[in-house]
Design a protein around this nucleic acid. Structure first.
Lengths: 216, 216, 216, 216
DNA sequence: AATGAATGAGCGTTCATTCAT
DNA sequence: AATGAATGAACGCTCATTCAT
């Protein structure tokens, strides 16, 4: 009779513990299947049984690893996202020039998503959806990436490389927006031109808009 | 789920005829209600009965004006979008300098959506969703706007104002992407800062990235 | 996302209003079907679809009249019980001698349930079950009947007819318990002897145990 | 649902053999756990895994001792019941006066259940439920007890102590019904008054109703 | 044209039972 | 013997759509 929608800490921990105790490989297989299916049909039109079938497990097995359908989406996004974030952070660590850092981020952004259409689809559509559905959670994810960009921008401003009279939020937004839109339109296009091919051009445009003009 | 997405000519005509024959005011009321409800809950989580209630009509009445739920979303988006497109085209007609045209478009973009949060929500999230569901349709709509921007960009390139060595598609993309992202992050933010306040800064960044550098 | 298990007053009223506004005849048909099906299989083994089929309505129709399966059971029991209670109260009103009142109650008890095996089954098994599940509700129902008996007993005690040195609760309990058990064993027996045939004998035993002994 | 209720001889033997061959202590632990859990939640709302957890064994282990869930309930009730029946028979053996025998049975009945609320709950609600599910079985159990009472009653009738003009079945029923109802209402009540406190009063009422009136 | 009661296909989730280890 | 991860059948409930009024 009494249902709880929010997990108390103990329960959540219990399930987390199970995940690793049971088959971590199966856990990952479900996440991968979820990305695939959700990319194809969208979250709301994906059936849990579709995901189970794609993962090669029984319907009920899903619920040994996730509390409910929503958590599958969350888990799949978080999983894919954190992998991407790690790459991004590594990319920045090996380079100190803000210009170059943005260049590398752009390439990573486009090549990561460009090489994984399913992932891109989920990021461009479901991540937004879920940002609405589950504000706290996925907004946090997206914001993490956005903040990474902002920190590079602020660094560039502090060092006199990027224009300081414009808010770092807006500069970062122009950068991220240009990349993001590129991915979206690439996804909607039928021809599969290489997405990362646009990287140089975009960076070129944005950097020029962002950089301090050369002193004459 | 297995529903017909394509109407045969006769049926479509029949419905179109009905729409105008019946109450155009009620038709519009349903569209407005749809935007509201979908903005609040998202398309898949909106119930047809919610929309009906909001529009002040009976559930069954909806089906005198639309074949199915999907068509309501389509109609609502198309309706709102064409209003926006008309404004955009008018804006361009009264100005011939590409720089100024982009400036005006940006302001229109941000102030239109900034003054109508519901509409913005539908555009930023549902339009993307439906870009998959209804690829032909909404892609067509969005593409129309995108092409408008591209035509301005191409005009600027032809007249030596904008950089010609970069594809107009990419330049337009940077412009649109920056605006689009601004709207999205504004939506997801809690503080309701005026969206259009960012217009000048964005245009400033993008134009500088897009324009030919001043000859020394 | 947010679910409510308890109805707020408005909602409950809304559904109650609907019941009468819609088809009261269909509402009753569902209740009757519920009694039948639940009598046959027990509450937990009854399927909502069984009840719907028996009532000759679609599964979904059930939910126009009841919020959930539990409420069907509640409704069915409450409905049947209140009919019984009305009879019982009428029976008492037309008679003032406590001895005779108990005699009539016993006959009503046994003949009511004896002439409706389904009803008897629900009262003897599901009412107890639900008394556990839904303490407040059905305990209230059963208590109402029990209190009726107690009031007769107290009346008899006050008038010096029934033994006053024993608590009215216990006297009423002996009376009710004897009848109740009679019904249960009748239900479990295969032979269908007339249940009400036992009425005289039971009343005879209980009355003698309850009455003040005749003064010598 | 379509499960076999009847075991063929071979299977039944095999399981019986296992039970004793394996750990009889674990078998008992499961039965005890079952009584607890079923008393708390009711049979249908109890999960096999709940019982396993309470017994401190793995889910699968249950099936080394029982064929299915239903058999656990059966076993638990049979187990508890036979313990009670042994007490009852011992009680009768040490006393030959039917009046006194009934008095002792009543006290045993109320004190046994009154000192074990879980057991009482199972007897008062689940045994009735299962009287339907498992008619043959639990009817047999309950009948055994009932027959014990009847034999005392018949003995009293034969010896001219109890009224012979009323069927022994009905007399026994009044006796058992009064006790049974007392237990039920005690269970449903919140206050935990001592159940056996009512024994004297009940026996007093019933005996007077049952006994032959004293010759003047 | 408008209504809203009725429909029933469809899906998320549970849990008794199995079986590889 | 014991485990507990895996299974998948089963069911309560929702909601887009229809149609008698």
């Amino acid at each position: 009779m009494a249902q709880k929608n929010k997990l108390d800490g103990a329960e959540a921990d219990e399930l987390s513990a199970k995940r690793s105790a049971r088959s971590p490989e199966k856990y990952q297989r479900i996440l991968d299947a979820a990305i695939e299916v959700i990319a194809e049909r969208g979250y709301f039109q994906s059936r849990v049984s579709d995901i189970a079938a794609r993962a090669g497990v029984a319907d009920g097995t899903i619920y040994l690893y996730f509390h409910n359908k929503e958590e599958i989406l969350l888990g799949a996004i978080a999983n894919a996202f954190s992998a991407f974030m790690e790459l991004a952070q590594a990319e920045l660590a090996s380079e100190s020039d803000p210009r170059e850092q943005l260049r590398r981020l752009a390439l990573l952004h486009l090549s990561s998503l460009g090489s994984n259409r399913n992932l891109a689809m989920v990021f461009q559509t479901e991540l937004r959806q879920s940002a609405r559905m589950l504000a706290e959670f996925s907004q946090h994810q997206l914001k993490q990436y956005f903040d990474l960009i902002r920190s590079v921008v602020r660094d560039g401003q502090r060092r006199g490389i990027f224009r300081a009279e414009i808010s770092d939020k807006i500069l970062a937004n122009c950068f991220f927006g240009a990349l993001d839109e590129m991915v979206t339109s690439w996804l909607l296009s039928d021809r599969e031109y290489p997405l990362s091919g646009a990287s140089e051009a975009i960076v070129d445009v944005i950097l020029r808009g962002v950089e301090c003009p050369p002193r004459p």
